[in-house]
Design a protein around this nucleic acid. Sequence first.
DNA 1: ATTTTGCACTCTATAGAGGACAGTGCTAAA
DNA 2: TTTAGCACTGTCCTCTATAGAGTGCAAAAT
Lengths: 353, 353
Amino acid sequence: MASTTDSSQLSDRSLQLFKALVEHFIEDGTPVGSRTLSKDSNMGLSPATIRNVMADLEDVGLLHSPHTSAGRIPTAKGYRLFVDSLLRVNDLNSSQVEKIARELAPESEYSSLMLRASSMLSDVTQLAGVVMLPRPKQSILQHIEFVALSSNRVLVILVVNDREVQNRIINTDKTYSTSELQKISNYLNELFAGKDLTQVRKSILDELEKMKEKVNQSMQSAIEMAQQALDSDTTKDKNDDLLFSGQTNLMDVAELGAADKLKKLFESFNQKRDILHLLEQAINANGMQIFIGEESGYDVLDKCSVVTSPYEADGQILGVLGVIGPTRMHYERIIPIVDITAKMLGAALNSKN
Amino acid sequence: MASTTDSSQLSDRSLQLFKALVEHFIEDGTPVGSRTLSKDSNMGLSPATIRNVMADLEDVGLLHSPHTSAGRIPTAKGYRLFVDSLLRVNDLNSSQVEKIARELAPESEYSSLMLRASSMLSDVTQLAGVVMLPRPKQSILQHIEFVALSSNRVLVILVVNDREVQNRIINTDKTYSTSELQKISNYLNELFAGKDLTQVRKSILDELEKMKEKVNQSMQSAIEMAQQALDSDTTKDKNDDLLFSGQTNLMDVAELGAADKLKKLFESFNQKRDILHLLEQAINANGMQIFIGEESGYDVLDKCSVVTSPYEADGQILGVLGVIGPTRMHYERIIPIVDITAKMLGAALNSKN
DNA sequence: ATTTTGCACTCTATAGAGGACAGTGCTAAA
DNA sequence: TTTAGCACTGTCCTCTATAGAGTGCAAAAT
């Protein structure tokens, strides 16, 4: 078999034709035949010649024929070559850039900013957008506060990592007054503010140990409440850090029209698990990342490509964002959009500090 | 025209046949013909007789023929009659009740409880579930707290209505120390805690007026910060009080298979607006409410029915929940499920106080 | 040696014809 | 009032024929 997987052995002409074919297919969605390509490529080659080249390209696994008398379409491997080596990315026109910049204006609120990024991605690409929220490696406790609710219930508010506010309700054995709670807050803040949550948890255990010796009623209840507060620490639900939007855009993509396929895709959006895994891979690779069809390793993304880019502020990678669409997408348009969105989101977050 | 819209003039026999027809259609999904119905209804009537009755039922607008030689299917009006007068609701088997009770155990956290209610609805009905969160008519400010962030930025935390925590970031003209902020918090809490937010806003304006006379620096900055804090009051995003789940269940409902129709439906789930309006109607009606097809007034819900029930705690109606599915659904099964879910959710919320 | 022409061949998509089928409405008989 | 009989109508399925697109290969042309 001459099917060496190495595409570098292909002639320039072959590659040029291949590129023309992929571009045509992305535009059209129908298999491309030799006659069409002959006209389309403008290289003064007859269909017969093109046929020979195409047969070669099929041998190396870049093309595939749905059936004998159809034209040819790119395989996943073909798309890979196209995207990696052949593609010439569009410049964004300035009105689009402006639109993105406007949507991601730094003055907007944090959570709505992320939401906006996602919906903007889906809007301008007409595909599904996704943003993976920053997941802090450490959780620095900045402030803890207790608010008395009705009988024996206390609302705990934690400010973590300079921005994130968590709250939960704990049940206490007695009813605390506002001033009591304030004393407790003050005490705990003095003790724990600025420390990492895991560290805080450890300290709490230590303190409880000490308690056994010198008994100090108010201090003790403070520590106990802190323990209860951090005990049920949800530290942000793992499922809450993925923001989808524009899924419905995928509903009129013909390739995914199998209904059953689309349903599975939507379900995996809801469960988030698979997509999360994929994006976690993407966050570790530096820079833009493109997963094409089967090669992502997830069946549900069979005929889909995912274009991702990490976004960063202060030189730190915070998360990933991207779009999900059919393998047959306008990469030359999508890629720069994802790229610039990531950069602008980073910039917006940067100016927040 | 003899097409008096009043169905009470129909004979018992007609109604009985009508009921049998609807039941058959709900089971089958295919138009029901006279022959089928003759066997199915077990009334010893020949197809010809049945045909006569069916023609009458069509005249009154309860049935409809897709084309000359198809059987008949119920119209929206037909479903209405069926649901209102003919339907005999199933008893729930105890294992299902148990499952619901387990899912809605009162010990679980508030927000996850609501989420669970929604996903449970979609799970047991295999349709789309929706829960409208309680939207308090008044917002009683219970506690206000300021936390210093980095340079000139202050995190404001509002506790409203005994449970709900809002937070936002404001920019200040100077950097406040923690103790300064605490003083301000204390001052404002004393002044405003327990009052309604709209009332608080008014008071702030009054106070600012007074300021002009007796100048008190610290008080002034406190009031100004409060103003800023409440100014950008999002008071909960209107779009955040609808929880959907199981939308994908609708994807294999054949009636909605028109793809385009399904897309529009999904889009209206995302925008939430229409569904919200519908549920707002449902909250005002007392008790269970069923919207059938076109009669809801929203095109997107063309071939859909929405079964809703308000849920209440402490004798107060808090919100609505329900399921969305094809008009051709098993009402006798769905209705009691929605009903009991609403009751159990209410009970779970009740025991929270 | 490469490219092109010519040609037989293959597969798909589309349209039309025909029949099976389901169900109707109407008339006349029970 | 109900039923039987019957002609009629629309849908759906299957079969067939045909046009069209595209291929691969062999032989001719460059």
